[in-house]
C-alpha cells in the first residue's frame, strides 16, 4: 500500500516536472487581446512564443474561457497590395527560435464573442501544443495603436 502511494506520488511529481519542463520550453510573453467594438464579430489575440528547446513546437489548438463560438489560428499575408487572411492548422515555433503573433501576421482569432471584453479585462486562454501539453495564458485587453520602430522599421504595438 505504502509503495503504491509512493509510486502514485512519484508519478504525480514526474508529471508536474514534465509540465514545468514543457512550460519552460515554450515561453509566452506579452499576451494581449486587441480592444474591439462592442459588436465586433472577431477578436484578435497576440503574443510572443519563444521556443527554448531543440525541437520544433507548434500550437495546434486554442481554447478560451470567454464565451465564443470557437477560436482559430490565422496568418495575414500581403500579396500585390491585397491582404489575405489564411486560417492555419497550427502555429509553428522553430527550435531555439520565436514566432511573434502580431497584427498583420500570425494571430489567434476568437470568433463571435458573446460579450466583447473591454480595456483592462483579462482573457484566459489554453494553448494546446504539438507534444500534447497545454499551456495557460492570461491576455489583457488593450488598445491596438501602431507605432513605427525607428530602429527596425517594423510596425510595433503600444
Amino acid at each position: 500500500m505504502k509503495s503504491n502511494t509512493s509510486r502514485a506520488l512519484g508519478t504525480l511529481l514526474l508529471s508536474l516536472l514534465a509540465f514545468s519542463v514543457a512550460a519552460e520550453e515554450l515561453m509566452i510573453t506579452n499576451p494581449w487581446v486587441r480592444s474591439a467594438p462592442p459588436n465586433a464579430p472577431a477578436l484578435g489575440v497576440f503574443m510572443k512564443l519563444s521556443n527554448h528547446s531543440s525541437d520544433e513546437i507548434a500550437v495546434v489548438e486554442v481554447r478560451t474561457s470567454l464565451e465564443v463560438s470557437h477560436a482559430e489560428m490565422h496568418r495575414t499575408v500581403m500579396t500585390d497590395g491585397v491582404m489575405k487572411m489564411i486560417p492555419q492548422k497550427q502555429i509553428p515555433v522553430a527550435a531555439h527560435s520565436s514566432t511573434e503573433l502580431k497584427p498583420g501576421s500570425w494571430h489567434i482569432m476568437l470568433m463571435q464573442p458573446e460579450q466583447v471584453p473591454v480595456m483592462g479585462d483579462s482573457v484566459h486562454l489554453t494553448l494546446v501544443l504539438s507534444d500534447g501539453t497545454e499551456q495557460m495564458v492570461v491576455a489583457t485587453v488593450r488598445k491596438g495603436e501602431m507605432k513605427m520602430d525607428s530602429h527596425s522599421h517594423e510596425m510595433k504595438m503600444d
Binding site: P41, M83, P103, G144
Partner: peptide, 17 residues
C-alpha cells in the same frame, strides 16, 4: 468589413491615431 479579423482593425486604429 466588420468580420475582418486583422487588417481592418489595424487600419482603423492607425487612422484613429
Amino acid at each position: 468589413y466588420t468580420h475582418c479579423p486583422d487588417v481592418c482593425p489595424t487600419e482603423l486604429y492607425r487612422m484613429a491615431e
